[in-house]
Design a protein around this nucleic acid. Structure first.
Length: 363
DNA sequence: TCTCTCACG
DNA sequence: ACGTACGTGAGAGAC
C-alpha cells in the first residue's frame, strides 16, 4: 500500500488516508467530507472506488483484519475472569431509548458473524465443559411480525399466518407477479424495502442502499404503499400520535419521549418522525424478549434445571445446556419465547433453535 | 474527550 | 434547498 501510494503513512488514520487518496492520488474529484472537514473514508465510500483502485481494495482488507484483531482477538482473552475462567459481560437496562438491553465490558452483543474471518471468532465461544452444548434460540423476523400485528395490514398479516417467506411475498406484491415468479433480484430489493419500513424509509435511503436510482426507489415505495396500505396508515398514525403526545410507545406502553417531534428544523424533525415509527417496533420486540427471559428463568428454577441462560442479543437467547436437558430446552425455550407476548391480529411469533459445540454452530 | 470507523441486531 | 433508514459499544487517532 505504501508503494502504491508513493508515501508511507499511518494506514489506521482516516485523516491521513483521506489526504493520500483524495489529494495525492486524486481518486475522486467529488470526494465527500465529514462535518469537520475531513475526507470521508467509510466503507461505503471506499467500496465505490475499490473496483478500479487496488490500494482501496487493500485498505478495505486491512480494515477488516485490524478491526477483528484489535477489538476481539487481542482483547477478549485479556478479559477472562481469573476466578471463573470465563468472559463476563454487563447488561445495561436503562441506556437504549427503545428498551433494548445494551452490553459492555466487554460488549458481547456485537461478536462477528458476517465475514469468514469473523465467523472464526464466534467459534471461540464454547460451552463450559464436554458435558454441555450451546443452545441458541432466536426470533424469526420478529420486527416485521410486530409491524404486521400492530398495523393489522391485511397482506402482511396473511403472509405470516400462512408461514410464507415474507420477502418473497412482499416482492410478489410490489412487482406485481406471482410468488413463484419472484426472482432473486426482486426478493433482494423487497428485503431492503422491508428493512426500510422498520426504519422509516425515504426514497433516498432505499436508493443508496440498493445502488438504484431515486426514481426507481420511489416507484418501488409507491407500489409498496399501495399494496400494503395498512403499513402506510401505521406510519401516519404513529407520527400523528407522537406529535400530539410528545412520545411514542410500545404495545406494552413503554414510552420514548421525542422532544424534537414538532421541531421547525426539517432534518431534526424528520429524525424524530423516524424514531416515532421505529421505537414502537424495536421496543415491542425488546419487551417481548424480556418477558420471555423472565418466564424462562422462572421455568429453569421451577424444574430445578442445571442449564443456564447466559447471553441475550436482541432477538436471540443463548444457553449453556447440560446434555441431559437438551431435548427439554429445545422444546420449551422456543414455546415460551413465542407465547411471552401474544401479538394482536393473530400474528404468530416464531422462534427457532440450534445446538452446537460453539456459538457459530449453534446459530 | 471528540471524531471516525465498524462490529452486531 | 436540505439531508436522509433504527438502536448500540469500542478501538485508534487527533487534539
Amino acid at each position: 500500500m505504501y508503494e502504491q501510494a508513493g508515501v508511507r503513512f499511518n494506514l489506521a488514520s482516516p485523516k491521513q488516508l483521506g489526504e493520500v487518496l483524495f489529494e495525492k492520488l486524486k481518486l475522486d474529484p467529488k470526494a465527500k467530507k465529514t462535518k469537520t472537514g475531513q475526507y470521508a473514508t467509510g466503507e461505503d465510500v471506499l467500496l465505490k472506488l475499490a473496483a478500479e483502485n487496488k490500494i482501496v481494495e487493500d485498505i478495505l482488507g486491512f480494515r477488516e483484519l485490524t478491526k477483528l484483531r484489535n477489538t476481539y482477538v487481542d482483547t477478549l482473552p485479556q478479559l477472562i475472569n481469573p476466578r471463573t475462567g470465563r468472559v463476563h459481560t454487563s447488561y445495561n437496562q436503562t441506556i437504549a431509548v427503545t428498551g433494548r438491553l445494551s452490553s459492555n465490558n466487554p460488549n458481547l452483543q456485537n461478536i462477528p458473524i458476517r465475514t469468514e474471518r469473523g465467523k472464526e471468532i464466534r467459534k471461540a465461544f464454547i460451552p463450559r465443559d464436554t458435558n454441555h452444548f450451546l443452545l441458541s434460540a432466536d426470533y424469526s423476523q420478529i420486527e416485521l411480525r410486530i409491524v404486521a400485528a400492530m398495523s393489522g395490514d391485511k397482506h402482511m398479516c396473511e403472509a405470516f399466518k400462512e408461514g410464507k417467506d415474507i420477502h418473497r411475498a412482499t416482492a410478489a406484491k410490489v412487482f406485481g407477479v406471482a410468488e413463484s415468479e419472484v426472482t432473486g433480484e426482486m426478493r433482494r430489493k423487497a428485503k431492503s424495502v422491508n428493512f426500510g419500513i422498520i426504519y422509516g424509509q425515504s426514497a433516498f435511503g432505499l436508493a443508496s442502499n440498493l445502488g438504484i436510482s431515486r426514481s426507481e426507489a420511489k416507484e418501488i415505495i409507491d407500489n409498496y404503499m399501495e399494496e400494503f396500505a395498512g403499513i402506510r396508515t401505521y406510519m401516519e398514525k404513529h407520527i400523528a400520535f407522537a406529535k400530539e403526545h410528545g412520545y411514542a410507545e410500545t404495545l406494552m406502553g413503554r414510552k420514548n419521549w421525542l422532544k424534537d417531534i414538532n421541531s421547525s428544523n426539517f432534518t431534526v424533525r424528520a429524525f424524530a418522525e423516524r424514531a416515532a415509527i421505529n421505537s414502537p417496533i424495536q421496543g415491542t420486540a425488546a419487551d417481548m424478549i424480556k418477558l420471555a427471559m423472565i418466564d424462562i428463568q422462572a421455568e429453569l428454577e421451577k424444574q430445578h434445571l442445571q442449564s443456564k441462560m447466559i447471553l441475550q442479543v436482541h432477538d436471540e437467547l443463548i444457553f449453556d445446556v447440560v446434555k441431559d436437558e437438551v431435548e427439554l430446552l429445545k422444546k420449551r425455550v422456543p414455546e415460551m419465547m413465542q407465547q411471552a407476548l401474544v401479538l394482536p391480529n393473530d400474528v404468530p411469533a416464531l422462534a427457532e433453535t440450534g445446538i452446537g459445540e460453539n456459538w457459530l454452530e449453534a446459530h
